[in-house]
Design a binder for these strands. Structure first.
Length: 377
RNA sequence: UCGAUACCUUUUUUU
C-alpha cells in the first residue's frame, strides 16, 4: 500500500488521473493516505466533483482530508464552498487557514487576507509568505516589504518572493541586495532563477548571464528567462543565439522563442516554427494559443481555426482567443456559436462578448449578458 | 521523510 500510494501521488502530480485511479482501484485495503492522495489528485487536476465524491465516500476522514478539500475549493476560487467545508470541519489547523489566505491573495482581496491573517490563532512561514504575496499581487510592494521585515525568520521562499516583488516594480537594486544578504548556501534554485530573471527583465543581460553561469547547477528555467527577456524586447537574433546555446529545450524554451518571432513582428516565422521546425511533442497549449492569437490579430481566422481544431485539448484561453478573433473581424455569428458551445465561461469570456455586442450595436444583448454574469457571482 | 496550504522560469485571450 505504501508503494502504491507513492505511485498514485506521482501519477496525480503529472496529470495521469486514469493511471492514478487504476492504481488506487487495485489496492486491496486502501488506507487513509491512499484516499486522501487520490482525492487530492482529482482536485489538483480540476475534477472537483469527483474529489468531493471520494471525500464523501471515505471510510474515515482525518484532518488532512478535510483541509485538502477546503484547499481544493479555495484554490478554484470557490470561496462559499470552502467556507462551508470550514464550518463543518471538526478542527482547524494552520494549513487550512493558509489555504484560505492564499485564495484571498490570489483573488486580489487584500482586506480579506489581512483580516484572516490577524485573526488566525497561529502563523507559520507559509502564512507569512501568503500575506506577503497578497500585498504583492495587489501591487503594494511597500506593504509586502513591511510584512517581510516583520517575519520572525526569513525562509528562502520568502526571500525569493520578495526579490521577485522588488524586481517587478523596477527595484533591481533592492532585489539584488536581498539576494546578496541571504546566508551563504541558503539560496535555492528558485532564488537563483529569480535573480537571473530580474537581471534579464531589467535589460542587464551581462549580469543575467554571469549570475546564470555562477549557479550551482545549470538551470533551464534561468536560461529560459534570458531568452524570454530578449524576446520581449523584440531581439529576435539575440534570442535565437541564446536559445541555440542551451543544452536542452523544454516547452517553455520553445515558447520563449515563439514569442521572439511574435514580438519582432514575424508571425509567419512563428507559424513556421510551430508547424514545421518544432519537434513533435514540444508544443504545448501555450504555444498553440500564442500562434492562434497571432493569426487572429492578423485577421487570418481560417488558419487560426485550423490550429484550434487540431488541438487535442483546449483551455479557457484557447476558446477565448478564438471567440475574440471572430468578434474582432465582425463575424459575430460564428463568435456566438463558439461562445454557446464553450465548456465554461470566465470573466474574460463575458467581457469580450459584452464588448462584441456593444460594438455590434446590440446594447440590449450586452446588458443581458452583464446581468447574467452578476447573478452567477 | 507515502497525503493537504507556500516561493522561481515560459503567459498566450477581453477591458
Amino acid at each position: 500500500t505504501y508503494l502504491a500510494n507513492l505511485l498514485i501521488d506521482m501519477y496525480g502530480k503529472c496529470g495521469s488521473l486514469a493511471d492514478a485511479s487504476a492504481v488506487f482501484g487495485g489496492i486491496r485495503r486502501p488506507n487513509s493516505f491512499s484516499w486522501t492522495i487520490m482525492m487530492a489528485a482529482y482536485a489538483r487536476n480540476g475534477e472537483l466533483s469527483t474529489a468531493r465524491q471520494l471525500f464523501d465516500a471515505m471510510p474515515c476522514r482525518g484532518l488532512v482530508a478535510w483541509a485538502a478539500m477546503v484547499a481544493a475549493y479555495a484554490h478554484q476560487g470557490l470561496m462559499p464552498d470552502a467556507q462551508d467545508m470550514l464550518q463543518r470541519m471538526p478542527h482547524w489547523n494552520v494549513a487550512t487557514w493558509n489555504a484560505m489566505l492564499w485564495a484571498y491573495g490570489r483573488a486580489g482581496n487584500v482586506d480579506a487576507a489581512t483580516g484572516l491573517f490577524t485573526s488566525m490563532p497561529e502563523h507559520d512561514m507559509v502564512s507569512w509568505l501568503a500575506l506577503l504575496t497578497a500585498f504583492d499581487r495587489a501591487g503594494q510592494v511597500q506593504e509586502a516589504r513591511a510584512a517581510f521585515d516583520a517575519m520572525p525568520e526569513h525562509s528562502a521562499a520568502a526571500c525569493t518572493s520578495m526579490l521577485v516583488a522588488h524586481a517587478r516594480h523596477g527595484q533591481l537594486d533592492k532585489a539584488v541586495l536581498l539576494f546578496d544578504r541571504m546566508p551563504p548556501g541558503t539560496a535555492t534554485m528558485a532564488s537563483w532563477n529569480a535573480l537571473v530573471a530580474a537581471f534579464a527583465a531589467a535589460g542587464d543581460l551581462r549580469a543575467a548571464e554571469s549570475a546564470r553561469a555562477a549557479m550551482p547547477q545549470t538551470s533551464l528555467d534561468a536560461w529560459n528567462s534570458i531568452v524570454a527577456a530578449q524576446a520581449a524586447a523584440g531581439q529576435l537574433q539575440a534570442a535565437k543565439a541564446e536559445f541555440d546555446r542551451m543544452p536542452e529545450h523544454d516547452a517553455a524554451a520553445w515558447n520563449a522563442l515563439l514569442l521572439a518571432y511574435l514580438r519582432s513582428g514575424n508571425p509567419d516565422g512563428a507559424c513556421d516554427l510551430l508547424e514545421e521546425r518544432m519537434p513533435v511533442g514540444a508544443a504545448d497549449l501555450v504555444s498553440r494559443n500564442a500562434v492562434m492569437a497571432c493569426h487572429c490579430r492578423a485577421g487570418r481566422l481560417g488558419r487560426a481555426r485550423r490550429v484550434f481544431d487540431g488541438m487535442s485539448e483546449r483551455d479557457a484561453v484557447s476558446w477565448n482567443t478564438m471567440v475574440a478573433g471572430y468578434a474582432r473581424t465582425g463575424d459575430l455569428a460564428e463568435a456566438e456559436r463558439l461562445f454557446r458551445n464553450m465548456p465554461r465561461w470566465d470573466v474574460v469570456t463575458c467581457n469580450l462578448m459584452i464588448c462584441a455586442y456593444a460594438d455590434d450595436g446590440r446594447p440590449a444583448e450586452a446588458v443581458r449578458l452583464f446581468d447574467t454574469m452578476q447573478e452567477r457571482d
